[in-house]
Amino acid sequence: MNLFRFLGDTAHLASILVLIHKMHTTKSCRGISFKTQALYVAVFVTRYLDLFYRWVSLYNFFMKLFFIGSSCYILFLMKTKFRPTQDPAIDTFRIEYLLGPCTVIALIFNYKFSPTEILWSFSIFLESVAILPQLFLLQRTGEAETITTHYLAALGIYRALYIPNWIYRYFTEGVVDPIAITAGLVQTGLYIDFFYVYVTKVLQGQKFELPA
């Protein structure tokens, strides 16, 4: 564990708490992509199967439980209490285009051709693109509530902090995880456009609005 990774995980945790807070305070899940949230459940469940057979640390154990539990809770809220505030008509990204290629790539690129390793690879690749339905929704509506942008910013910061973590690990432990690094760079790259608008508008006190 190093500071970059710890802060990254903290940002990830914070992003989820911000999202849950947004839903409860605005009594709405408007502007949130159900598809992205469902993909995150798939990501966490397929990656954390090792909860059953590998012990890493108490920290690792509880974080995994939190990510699985909170992502399921978000789906539950979106399908029950806040269902009327959800608009499937604008959440139209075709997730088959993500699930298909991720499955194929996971079958090709994995550290061992075993069910759990293939699922692990799949979860890494899927996480890297799981935000796309959300960004697509944002693009379609052209604007977002400020709290929603804070959620996305925290998620982006989480990914960005994993990059110095890998650099640090390379120099201190000699650890290189090519699958995680490649997917992580792609994932971080997807946030660049968002961050430009977030920094130039939201952090200056303006509303998040995309140029027409």
Binding site: D50, V56, S57, K64, F67, Y111, Y162, P178, A180
Partner: peptide, 10 residues
């Protein structure tokens, strides 16, 4: 250690 042996990141 090889990455597949650890997977210690979240």
């Amino acid at each position: 250690p090889a990455a597949e042996e650890t997977h210690d990141e979240l």
